[in-house]
Design a protein around this nucleic acid. Structure first.
Length: 747
DNA sequence: ACATGTTCCCTTTTT
DNA sequence: GGGAACATGT
């Protein structure tokens, strides 16, 4: 299939900045890959081209598709294709000294960050009920996303006295990171930007030619950025600086900006044309993915946002089936319905890989996974508890990390007593205190355990640990990576521990370690001379994305966020309820609500042929039963594109749940397969659902009740029934509480 | 030092 | 409902 005129224009444009506004499914990736291939064909050396994406998956796909297009004509291995984070890690690995790191620097993930910050807050003697590691890190992260260092923190306009605490914590946190020869995700970008800023003003122009960072700013003649709407200010600065001598082409869709919470700023794309003189703007509006019914629904949702660049997608794939909107009793029913419907579709010949189930939060995945598996289908959870987050995997990687960088306390303390070797809490605390007193690393204090005040027995155990690491370190230089990892698992006693403990869980962990070893071998196959540093960098950055090792054809399940960029024949979007999607936390913030709307837009536009939106009348959310008020997004859908399916109106309270659970779902699913329309509940999505019956006054969400202790409050949900019924209520000061229903009375 | 019990938060979304 | 951090008991 050849490119359409707009796509061709975007591929061909040369000589100035280019902004491609690419709606969902309009062939954005095609444009990028064709553009890169065309550049190569014109004779641009591959190492002068940089392509940046947001996820590793996207990077991988892009590289593969470029490879395909080039068909061996060019040395595509020399192309720089990667995520912001992996590109920056790569630059940093080559020039770490400028920001005080060694070339063995470790990359801290969220839990490493937290344990470090906990230490910082303790050192600073900050009241720990007021400042949680997570909260403080949130501020710091925000600062880093904007390219701000501790001294520039006032630009965030945090109020005193919080600002002072944050500033001190930020400063100290960076000191500790540096002492640990480590950096966090935010630093990867910010450090490189810092280096690039310095490189921009070389003091001596002759030396400048030799400075690797200066060369970095002139290296690339073509830079392409995907998903530009998701860039935050530092990332944008990084691009500007790295592309100083390059033709810059950014591709994105303001309607799909869903990472505002991570510091992404839609302004980057909205103002691109203003900031880059003579920028050409190309709009891609022909959608090759979805039927018109799906597009009309998507458009109806996104149209309500303000401040859009604006575009209208069209497709010549026909009207297609109506979008299905289904209300069910509980989240269990919802899951079951999806499982059965998917099952039926697969029996009709649909490829399971072309089926996807989306949810707003990870927590919702359990029930869905459960029911899908129960119908005998295999499913793949994309993201979620990532492989590299597993304890045994993290431990093994921590061992490897300590082998070449023992200054990272977080890693040393992670493995010092795992598997258990009798170095308990007391001992560890003593060692940590000694390290703190000497201003040295934890590892240094292990070298002289007596100095830390340890008794003989404890000191001997510590020595044993140190010797073990040192022996492994000696082996490190002689062994290939895969064998080294095997040695670590063996010598550390990890394998033995898992075998001894004969539980199912240990078995699974053992298998995970085997998978990890397979993973190293894969790495070595791809990069035969790959180093330990490179491997650890790779796994730290690949983080969330689970290895796609299992080749079984399975249904895909994921959050809406991780669905971006993907497409499926058949899509189910679950939890279409107020407080779920849109999420409860955005209800009173119009800005975040717009992002939520874009998120819904992303969800709907993933579907090619069949889109099903489901909601549950009652849903358990951390133990609490919440009443499902239909999502406002459902209300936005044009009625003539939608086919509504509701179970029989069920105005029973939660107490009747078990009776309800017996049959309706099966009946429902059959009704679909027989294509019988259910029109019994025409207006479901827009009615409030009365809740409890038979227990005196009916209770419903949004009802105002009076309490003796807290005053008037709004009912958010309930759990239990009869005298044990509990209500979740929001007080006048917005605080949420759970109280016994008997404590309140209607106003 | 480890096993067991208890409380507390939690949950938006990811590199 | 559930996992992690803390507390207490052996």
């Amino acid at each position: 299939m050849s490119l359409n005129p707009a796509q061709q224009t975007a591929v061909d444009h040369r000589g100035g900045p280019l902004l491609v506004l690419a709606g969902a499914g309009t062939g954005k990736t095609r444009v990028i890959t064709h553009r890169v291939a065309a550049l190569l064909d014109e004779g641009v050396p591959p190492w002068r081209i940089l392509a940046v994406t947001f996820t590793n998956k996207a990077a991988k796909e892009m590289r593969e598709r470029i490879d395909e297009l080039c068909d061996g004509r060019h040395e595509t291995r020399e192309l720089w294709v990667g995520t912001f984070h992996s590109i920056c890690a790569r630059v940093l690995r080559r020039n770490p000294e400028g920001v005080g790191l060694s070339s063995h620097y470790a990359i801290y993930d969220t839990s490493d960050q937290k344990s470090l910050m906990k230490q910082v807050l303790t050192d600073l003697g900050v009241p720990d009920r007021l400042y949680t590691p997570k909260g403080v890190l949130g501020h710091i992260d925000r600062a880093k996303n904007q390219g701000l260092r501790p001294s520039e923190l006032d630009q965030l306009q945090i109020l005193e006295p919080v600002a002072t605490v944050i500033r001190n914590a930020y400063t100290k946190y960076q000191e500790k990171l540096q002492a640990a020869d480590a950096c966090d995700f935010g630093d990867l970008i910010l450090h490189v930007v810092t280096l690039l800023r310095k490189a921009m003003k070389p003091s001596d122009s002759q030396l400048a030619d030799l400075d690797p960072m200066v060369r970095m700013t002139t290296r690339f003649t073509h830079v392409v950025v995907d998903e530009f709407q998701d860039t935050n200010p530092v990332q944008a600065e990084f691009i500007d600086r790295i592309a100083r001598n390059a033709e810059l082409c950014v591709v994105g869709d303001d309607d799909q900006s869903i990472y505002g919470w991570r510091g992404a700023d839609v302004d980057q794309i909205l103002r691109f044309a203003d900031r880059h003189d003579g920028a050409k703007v190309v709009r891609l509006e022909q959608n090759y993915r979805s039927t018109m019914n799906i597009l009309k629904c998507s458009d109806a949702v996104i149209r309500k946002n303000s401040g859009r660049l604006g575009k209208t997608l069209w497709s010549d794939l026909g009207e297609g089936d109506p979008v299905r909107m289904v209300r069910l009793g509980t989240e269990r029913d919802e899951a079951r319905l999806i499982a059965q419907d998917a099952h039926a579709a697969i029996e009709d010949g649909t490829d399971p890989e072309e089926i996807a189930v989306f949810y707003r939060t990870h927590a919702m995945s359990r029930v869905l996974e459960d029911e899908v598996r129960r119908t005998g289908l295999s499913c793949r959870i994309v993201g979620g508890v990532a492989f590299y987050e597993r304890q045994e995997v993290k431990d093994t990687l921590a061992y490897l990390s300590v082998l070449r960088n023992n200054s990272s306390d977080a890693h040393v303390s992670r493995i010092i007593n795992r598997p258990g070797r009798g170095i308990g809490n007391t001992t560890q605390t003593r060692l940590a205190d000694a390290a703190a007193k000497n201003g040295s690393s934890l590892w240094d204090s292990l070298l002289d355990p007596e100095a830390a005040g340890l008794k003989k027995a404890a000191a001997r155990k510590v020595r044993g640990f140190v010797t073990m690491i040192q022996n492994l370190r000696d082996e490190m230089h002689q062994l290939p990576l895969d064998e080294l990892m095997a040695r670590v698992i063996e010598v550390s006693g990890y394998r033995e521990m898992l075998i001894t403990d004969d539980s199912e869980e240990s078995q699974a962990r053992l298998e995970n370690l085997q998978e990890l070893q397979g993973n190293v071998m894969e790495f070595l196959q791809e990069r035969p001379d790959g180093t330990l540093d490179e491997y650890l960098e790779l796994v730290s950055l690949v983080g969330g994305e689970r290895s796609e090792g299992d080749a079984t054809r399975a249904i895909n399940m994921m959050t809406v966020h991780s669905a971006k960029g993907l497409e499926f024949e058949r899509v189910y979007v679950t939890g279409m309820e107020e407080r779920v999607f849109p999420h409860a936390r955005v209800l009173d913030d119009p800005v975040q609500m717009e992002e939520e709307r874009r998120l819904a837009y992303v969800a709907l536009t993933r579907a090619k042929r069949m889109l099903t939106l489901t909601m549950a009348a009652r849903r358990r959310i951390y133990g609490q039963t919440q009443v499902g008020v239909p999502s406002r997004f459902l209300g936005d859908l044009p009625r003539d594109c939608v086919h509504r399916v509701g179970d029989e109106p069920d105005y029973g309270g939660y107490g009747r749940r078990s009776a309800h659970r017996e049959q309706p779902i099966r009946r429902q699913a059959e009704s679909w397969q027989n294509d019988i329309e259910y029109d019994t509940a025409p207006d479901i999505p827009f009615d409030d659902i009365p809740a409890d019956e038979g227990e005196g006054v009916p209770i419903y969400v949004g009802m105002i009740v009076r309490t003796r202790t807290f005053g008037d409050a709004e009912v958010l949900g309930w759990s239990g029934s009869g005298p044990k019924m509990k209500l979740q209520i929001r007080l006048g000061n917005r605080e949420v509480k759970t109280v016994l229903a008997s404590f309140v009375e209607p106003v």
